[in-house]
Design a protein around this nucleic acid. Structure first.
Lengths: 222, 222, 222, 222
DNA sequence: CATGAATGAGCATTCATTCAT
DNA sequence: CATGAATGAATGCTCATTCAT
């Protein structure tokens, strides 16, 4: 059974979907410029992943996007606004996907599997976006709104853990700690795949999911 | 029982202890200059963690270390040599600590606990060093020797997992995957502490260790 | 009579006129930016002559040209590219002038006078450019193309000497040696004027020409 | 017959021999340090010729000389003092040699041959020193004393020309101009050898001497 | 909207010189 | 005398941002 708090959290997250990456955009683009903004974001994603934020020059992004350097400043107030828009866009995408597929009435074990599966799907379909979001340290340039989005996904994870603990199937520990442990394990596996230190196919991801569930699950002979 | 391969790996790691962070230092310092080199390394560690490699200017490091900008180039050939010396120094320190306390004849469960305990001790005693080593993407500026050191610690972890699998106490999956999953979980927990998203004391670390063991352990009823 | 080899050389030189100093320029400038590029080249010429290549700082060139330091790098890839563009521009100018006024069908004595006159005109009209081209040691920063241009002018001189030797009016010695001797004498005279060690007007240049012809000419009684 | 003026000039030059390259030296060295000073000068000569004055770092000179960087400042007040000492040393050496072998009572033709021969000998025996003295533009760092030494050799040359004109064997032109023309021709030939643009052996030098004499000589049918 | 030339502060690095030992 | 660590101003060059077109 779902706790009230969890339900409320989920609602709050749904509301936050309103925040698009246009929040920090200099102007509201007309349809025909959409392609240019998208081209900029796509180029920026690749370059930020390849060389990092500080290692990527704005004119390089412009070149890769096929636009002039000045054009970037029509769509984004600054380099920092660009990286935040990127971060927000993809963080919302993954958050939305997780939530959309979350089986609110299923058992925690199935919910866990669903979350893991959704993150796997996202990381497989958008490896650069996943690398950008989770494999980099976004030290100082993320703004409050970006950090809030990140926190909201973690809140969701922690709420799920708390709920599962109420159901008695997850270890009675700090839910935040367990949530971070699970995310850490997932990221560890995906980073190993990204950095080609391990061969990780769908089957391996499913097995890793079962193993990670074991980490937080209550075991008969614990 | 310990496999031969595992023993050999451990020996190779012991040999690699010879490499000090003076390997990539421009000049061999005399005793009285040691303080200056240490001051540079300490300042660089803090700043690289705070702002990242590309986000930190060499003159900033010099200021923080209380030396002139040019002095850094008496001790390190370049900014890249400095960050590699730093990386190597701390990676060796943690590798050495793990190995020194590794109970080669104990059961895998105790070995796992020892590794986790040593990493916890290191991360608690040197939080900045741990953040530097594990929370950053060390993209393009790490050299082969630094990468080798990182790989050697992962080899050790994978060898441990393989050995534990031979003993039948760890799940029969790709040992590299399990190793990365465990490291990821550990880093996740420590990152949560570093970024103040969770209160993680020694007790919590011990509990997290038990949970993470569950992730890779074979369980009676699955 | 003109030797075939000489004719061919002259043709090759004519072809090389295609190479403008924009060859090594970072971007192709639009008409209105021409002034800035020219301002940079003019300032660089003066400063390189006054203080030498290594003795001139790029920001000094920028100041003298009335542009920002960074602007230089819009027009030239590097300081070395700038000095090569400068060298090439003026070397081509003088080479072109010599060739354009070369009386291919005249007697060697008149050809010699024409070459000398053209070099004199150039050195008088562009004293800084001549000083830059001939009074400096262009050690390590000249690239192959620049060296090729220099060589091509010397080839032309040597070919002229060889041709004049065939006509029996020039001493039967290594034509390259005679050519270098003549160029050296010319540079010596012009350097004396540049460094104000002698008063050298047009009349003096004409007399010096006659004297230098005597150096290579066959004399009745030796 | 030798003019009085010429004799007096020669005397003044002889006096100037007193100025050794120790004039601008920080301390008067004791015998055992002579080697170090010499080592510094030898290393500096080579490096200044190879890379130019501004292109050579003082610590590089120290390295090449096998001394510490600070040691150079025991012998020379500054980098400029070092290059001036070097210039003076070699300029005096060549001046002394020319004068020592100058046949004061011989005919101008023989005197000319003697000067040329002495310069050839010097340039052959000390190619780096000759390259340093004559093939480089010593723009801004030569001090008055160095310039005076250079001027005194040119004065000698001009006086010789004037004397030969009195004897009626040299063209009646500005003697300074003829002197510069002759030096220029000589330098042109030697530069061609130094830069390997022509094969110049002793025989070629003798022939070049005869040619250069023709440049300034009065010819029957001029 | 879009451009890209222009800016100038900031970067990593060098190097002439000093000075404590 | 001799050293070489230390300095810090200066160098060649980059790059986020602006703005005239």
């Amino acid at each position: 059974m779902m706790s009230t708090m969890f339900i409320e959290l989920v609602d709050r997250i749904l509301e936050s979907y309103e925040y698009s990456f246009n929040n920090h955009v200099a102007r509201r683009p007309s349809p025909q410029t959409w392609n240019k903004q998208e081209a900029i974001l796509t180029a920026a994603l690749r370059l930020f992943v390849e060389r990092g934020y500080h290692g990527t020059a704005v004119p390089e992004v412009a070149d890769a996007a096929g636009v002039a350097a000045g054009t970037i400043y029509h769509y984004f107030e600054s380099k920092a606004a660009l990286v935040n828009a990127l971060y927000r866009h993809w963080k919302q995408t993954v958050t939305r996907a997780i939530h959309a597929s979350f089986p609110a009435t299923a058992a925690p074990r199935q919910q866990f599997a669903a979350i893991w599966r959704e993150m796997s799907t996202f990381a497989t379909a958008n490896p650069e976006a996943f690398a950008f979001l989770e494999l980099h340290h976004h030290g100082s340039y993320l703004d409050d709104e970006s950090l809030r989005l990140d926190a909201s996904l973690r809140d969701f994870g922690a709420a799920f853990v708390k709920n599962a603990q109420l159901a008695g199937v997850v270890k009675p520990m700090d839910p935040r700690l367990l949530m971070e442990l699970v995310f850490g394990a997932f990221i560890g596996v995906l980073r190993a795949r990204w950095e080609r230190r391990a061969f990780v196919d769908d089957d391996a991801l499913v097995k890793a999911e079962a193993a990670t569930w074991d980490a937080i699950a209550v075991h008969p002979a614990g």
